[in-house]
Amino acid sequence: MNSLGIDKPAKDTRVVVAMSGGVDSSVVAGLMAREGYDVIGITLQLYDHGEAIHRKGACCAGQDIHDARRVAASLDIPHYVFDYESKFRESVIDDFADSYVRGETPIPCVKCNQTVKFQDLLEASRELNADVLVTGHYIQSRQSNGQYSLYRPLDHGRDQSYFLFATTQEQLDYLRFPLGGMTKDEVRDIARDMGLVVAEKSDSQDICFVPNGNYAQIIQKLRPEAIDPGEIVHLDGRVLGEHKGIIHFTIGQRRGLGISAGEPLYVVKLEPETKRVIVGPYEALATRSVKLKQVNWLGGMSLDEIEEMGPINIEAKVRSTRPPQPARLSVKNGEVEVELVGGEHGVSPGQACVFYADDSEDTQVLGGGWIAQAVSAAA
């Protein structure tokens, strides 16, 4: 059994590495090559990289493709660039725009993992007769009883489990995450030791297809109707002003509302049908539970069994930047609802709720779902 859990020698094990051009995936490619695997590097061209080639803080741009090529050459492994622009636009960018038009707050990085990377790229890896697809994500997977389970990484500061909740069991059994047991500092040290040209390269920060973080500009171009004006209305019914499109607002927003009031006001609801932005006090943002759709469950028992036995205790995250919090998951008529024991504020449809087994340092990821409705604590 080799280090990837495949029952044959490393030299006879074909590994596809998803190479973004950053330090993490480059180190993964280096580790696989150093262990003697039959490594193929693949980089995805996801959008018009010519426009973004000099923009810092974005992944998959032209400079990143160039860097991936240079790393592959230094490791003496074959490297290919796959043109997935049309797939990416359909699965990620169009979905991103449509979600904002519906008054939601989308997470395109999850959609990208869910579709282009772990669906299309995974299928391409199989067509190349690869035994596994390896990525530079900070998350752990372990095999037990013939299948793999997902766990939070050693470096909680780099934890990417929130963005990988939609990984299916079939995909998980084919994927490997060598960096899950390392810290970022250790990864950079390995990159320096290998002499990789990207060893000091900064991490990507922005959504790759959103120049300068201007979401509204992208959405306006794709969905011109999204900038239709409407009213800004207080929860008590008072009309406080007008806006230039609900795409300029997100649940929980306080600044930039364009209205004057004698109290701090926050966006508490977006109504795309009436084009109204509803505002109110901070207390109105309190959420006690979330109703989910498109749930991906990776736990031991099935959701049907949970429906029969009643609610179970879990830990849950409704934001990528927050640690898991105590919660209770219940299933009724096939619909999943998560009660947030300590409550939360400013939860928006379109975000994700990710499930964990407990709050230990080395906890299992049980899956998650997309938030269809945030139930007010006052309900």
Results as ranks from 00 to 15, higher is better:
Met182Glu: 07
Ala52Leu: 15
Asp362Trp: 04
Met32His: 07
Thr321Tyr: 05
Thr43Ser: 14
Glu263Met: 14
Ala58Thr: 14
Arg34Leu: 11
Ile107Asn: 09
Arg34Gly: 07
Val277Ile: 04
Gly30Asn: 11
Glu273Gln: 15
His79Leu: 06
Ala379Arg: 13
Tyr356Met: 06
Glu123Asp: 13
Ile93Asn: 11
Glu361Ser: 14
Ala372Asp: 10
Ile314Gly: 09
Tyr100Phe: 15
Val92Phe: 00
Val15Asp: 06
Glu104Thr: 01
Gly334Phe: 01
Tyr84Ala: 15
Ala166Arg: 14
Ser91Leu: 11
Leu303Cys: 02
Lys244Arg: 15
Ala374Asp: 00
Phe355Ala: 06
Gln325Tyr: 05
Tyr100Glu: 08
Leu154Thr: 13
Leu196Ile: 05
Pro311Cys: 01
Asp7Arg: 15
Thr183Trp: 02
Gly146Trp: 02
Tyr138Thr: 09
Lys56Thr: 09
Asn212Cys: 04
Asp12Met: 03
Val295Thr: 09
Pro178Ala: 09
Gly280Asn: 07
Gly280Leu: 01
Ser330Pro: 07
Val210Trp: 07
Ser289Thr: 04
Phe249His: 03
Gln171Trp: 02
Ala191Arg: 07
Glu263Asn: 13
Leu44His: 10
Asp189Asn: 15
Asp83Glu: 03
Phe118Arg: 10
Lys269Phe: 07
Gly36Pro: 02
Gly258Ile: 01
Leu329Val: 03
Ile93Leu: 05
Ser91Phe: 13
Phe88Pro: 05
Gly103Ser: 05
Glu90Trp: 07
Cys208Met: 13
Gly346Leu: 04
Ser141Asp: 06
